Amino acid sequence: MTTAPDDARRDAFPYQAMRDVVEQARDSVPGKLEITREGIVHDMTSPGGPHGLTVLRIRKRIERLMPDELAAHTGTPDVENRAEGVLRHPDIMLVAERDMETEGAFDPRSLLAAVEVVSRSHPDNDWVGKTRDYPLLGVPVYAIFDPRTGSGAVFSDIHPTPEGPRYATRKDFVYGEDVTIAEWTVSTRDLPRYR
């Protein structure tokens, strides 16, 4: 669910004000709070169940293949571009450990890839909002796993468009197939589905 200003009211409710609201509410509100150009998005993602198990299995499968200096990070902080007014929190961030040695949000351009597991409560946040925001932030690869349908997609090759940067390449997959995320190919077998 998106709350707060649309483009017409954006100037009256600047990014820093939304950032302050997110920081103050983060520990008392379940799920994730993120900021897009449309306002604050509240995603009621449950940390357990099929969503959490999918995140865990994908993270483990990718980390087995990565060199030691890289991580498939699932914690905080967020990725942020203040100039664009966007704050996102990927389920998994593929990032070099040296780029994690920072205070505050990660520079989204330091990510090798972002991985999201579609939430049951707000699928458009992953399929629409993040396919718009991640190329804007400079995240080179974006992978989506959708437990609703047992399918997903990997987006890459950022290119300019009149609406802003977008991914030029989309590779769809169904659960059971191998999928390549950045440089690493992982199995999608045995990933749970929503019931």
Rank of each mutant, 00 (worst) to 15 (best):
T2C: 00
T2G: 00
T3H: 11
T3I: 15
A4R: 05
A4W: 07
A4I: 00
P5T: 12
D6M: 04
D7W: 11
R10K: 08
D11M: 00
F13Q: 02
Q16I: 09
M18I: 08
M18Q: 15
V21P: 00
Q24E: 15
Q24F: 13
A25S: 11
D27I: 00
S28A: 13
V29S: 08
L33C: 09
E34C: 07
I35G: 02
I35S: 01
T36E: 10
T36S: 15
T36H: 11
E38G: 14
E38Y: 06
E38D: 15
G39P: 00
G39V: 01
H42G: 06
D43A: 13
M44S: 07
T45E: 08
P47F: 10
P47Y: 10
G48C: 05
G48P: 02
G52V: 02
L53R: 04
T54G: 12
R57S: 10
I58N: 10
L65E: 14
L65D: 06
L65V: 04
M66R: 02
D68C: 05
L70H: 06
A71C: 03
A71R: 14
T74Y: 00
P77A: 08
E80K: 02
N81Y: 07
N81T: 10
R82Q: 14
G85C: 14
V86C: 10
L87C: 05
R88E: 02
H89W: 09
D91T: 10
D91W: 07
V95K: 09
A96Y: 07
R98V: 10
R98G: 00
D99R: 01
D99W: 01
D99M: 00
M100E: 04
E101M: 07
T102E: 06
E103F: 08
E103Y: 06
G104S: 05
D107M: 11
D107E: 14
R109F: 04
R109Y: 03
L111K: 04
L112T: 12
A114K: 04
S119R: 06
R120L: 12
S121K: 04
H122R: 13
D124W: 01
D124R: 02
D124A: 02
D124C: 00
W127L: 15
G129A: 12
R132H: 12
R132I: 03
R132L: 03
D133H: 05
Y134P: 02
P135H: 09
L136T: 07
L136F: 03
L136V: 06
L137A: 02
L137K: 03
P140T: 07
P140V: 07
V141P: 01
V141Y: 03
Y142P: 01
I144Q: 13
F145H: 09
D146G: 06
D146R: 06
P147N: 13
P147K: 14
R148V: 00
T149N: 11
T149F: 12
T149R: 12
G150V: 08
G152A: 11
A153R: 11
V154Y: 10
S156E: 13
I158M: 10
H159T: 13
P160T: 06
T161Y: 05
R166F: 06
Y167F: 15
F173Y: 12
F173D: 14
G176V: 13
E177I: 04
E177R: 05
E177P: 01
T180M: 09
I181D: 03
A182E: 13
W184D: 04
S187F: 06
T188C: 09
R189G: 02
L191Y: 11
R193A: 07
R193N: 05
R195P: 05
R195G: 07
